[in-house]
Amino acid sequence: MIAATKDIAHPVEAATVMRLFPTRPRLLALGEPTHGEDVLLDVRNELFRQLVEQEGYRTIAIESDCLMGLVVDDYVTSGTGTLDEVVERGFSHQWGAFPGNRELVRWMRAYNDGRPASERLRFAGFDGPLEITGAASPRQALTALHTYLTAWADVDLLPCAADTLDRLLGADDRWANPAAMLDPSRSVGRTPEAQQLRLLADDLVTLLDAQIPQLLAASSPDDWARARLYGRTATGLLRYHFWMADPSSGRMARLLALRDSMMAANLFAIAERGPALVAAHNGHLQRNKSTTRMGGLPLQWWSAGAIVSAHLGDGYAFLATALGTIRHHGVDAPPPDTVEGVLYALPEDRYVVDPRRLATALATMTPAARVSPWFGYSPLDPAHVADTDGIVFVKDVPAG
């Protein structure tokens, strides 16, 4: 088996990766099977540098709060703020604490220095303002959208004044109450105020679309794009809070699906700017249904990658990352009859594999599914290897 697979392992380089696809994808998705490992961020950063320098990519989008990501984008494009401030305020999920993310921001700012706007790199978060423990207040997105429309649209067409939004929103900690994730009755998502906010948010987004000729003539393209982001985020958050208040058994599956739907909407907007590298967990980027268990119940939903792939076709490509060992988390060498086990037997430390050629090499065996002893690592599913466009394999993950 080792001899049959030696010629399918190639360096993780932009030129090698691009040969996997029939055309240059608008969104090249690089998944990871676990979060927080520095080596995976190093692989991502080096691939992004090469895609920028050799393939004309200009944007990187990561699994982080889309509104917080604007802080990073302002810094890398125009130098607003300091590096320390940006990595502290520009990432959700505590991603700013990882050296690889800091280095990414530093390099992007250095690359952009002195370049014209058309050649500058852009940064985006494409996750909603969501955490495992709950969802943010829609205040930031709603008020920013209202402010933009007040400045550039016909004011008489606005559905409400700013103070009406403020009154209906109330205290932000009511929205972000972590108890609401486990107890639907603690959510404010179906209160009369929240229901009215959903209608107003819909009217504001409709006005944004209806006034597009005037808005594009009066404001900058970036301001318009940000207003669209505020609109998507406001309506998405209000929808998410509504279903947080749902007491039915389908509640968690719906919330997971809503999160990935919000991610997909952001990815469509990012694709409009030109080719981008997208970095997130494999589960958000894969083409097959995502699955998990919560409270003993199996849950299924379509990932952001599956949604985007259905729309973009060859414009979307997915590289799944797999790992050999994460010994500091008890993940030792994979069994030889698993896909990871076959790849682990090769001598290289990290490489990219064409799944079609891998399938040919594995034709004489039926790979077993690897079982991770650590919940934080998601092994490859051998039944869906063919649904990827490439596999990035990292043999051993050093302790951080």
Rank of each mutant, 00 (worst) to 15 (best):
G283V: 12
L216C: 09
G376S: 13
A4I: 00
P367I: 09
L229V: 02
D203I: 00
Q195E: 15
A162C: 02
S220W: 07
L83N: 03
W107H: 02
D42S: 11
L27D: 10
R89G: 05
A306R: 15
D381V: 00
L216D: 14
R251V: 07
D173G: 01
L380Y: 06
T23D: 15
D163Q: 12
N45C: 07
F21E: 08
M181D: 02
S187A: 15
R356G: 14
G324R: 10
I391D: 10
L47D: 11
P367N: 09
P178N: 06
V308W: 14
R186C: 04
W152A: 09
P99Q: 06
V105I: 15
P22Y: 03
E103Y: 10
R102T: 13
V394A: 07
Q300D: 02
D172H: 06
S92C: 07
H241P: 02
V17Q: 05
R357Y: 00
A151S: 13
L267I: 02
A271V: 11
R167L: 12
E348D: 14
G100D: 08
P99Y: 03
Y230L: 01
M68V: 01
L130E: 14
P33G: 04
R357D: 10
A9I: 00
G400A: 09
A227Y: 12
A218F: 01
Q50A: 13
Q211L: 04
V352M: 05
A179F: 06
C66H: 01
S372W: 06
G295F: 15
R102N: 09
D172P: 02
D74T: 06
L207C: 08
G36I: 05
Q286M: 15
G330H: 13
G296P: 10
A317C: 04
N266Y: 03
N45L: 10
W243D: 14
A217P: 06
L199Q: 13
T338L: 06
D156W: 04
A61M: 05
P336V: 12
T292M: 14
H329T: 00
F91Y: 15
A61F: 03
D7P: 07
D166H: 12
Y351N: 01
A176G: 15
W107L: 03
F126L: 03
R49A: 01
L238Y: 08
V188C: 10
Q54N: 05
E55L: 01
I132H: 12
G96S: 05
A3Y: 04
W243P: 00
A333N: 01
D396H: 08
P347A: 03
L168D: 03
R109Y: 05
L104V: 04
L207H: 04
R254L: 14
H384A: 04
V39A: 15
L208M: 08
T191P: 11
G36A: 07
W95L: 14
D127L: 02
A3F: 04
R190W: 02
A269V: 00
L207S: 07
H93C: 05
S309G: 15
L215W: 11
P138N: 09
Y75C: 09
L229W: 07
A399D: 14
L312A: 13
A4S: 13
P336F: 09
T16L: 06
V86W: 10
E13A: 14
N288K: 01
G128Q: 13
R49N: 11
G79D: 14
A201K: 00
F98E: 07
P25E: 10
L70A: 13
A217L: 11
A361G: 15
A265E: 14
A110H: 08
E348P: 00
A253D: 12
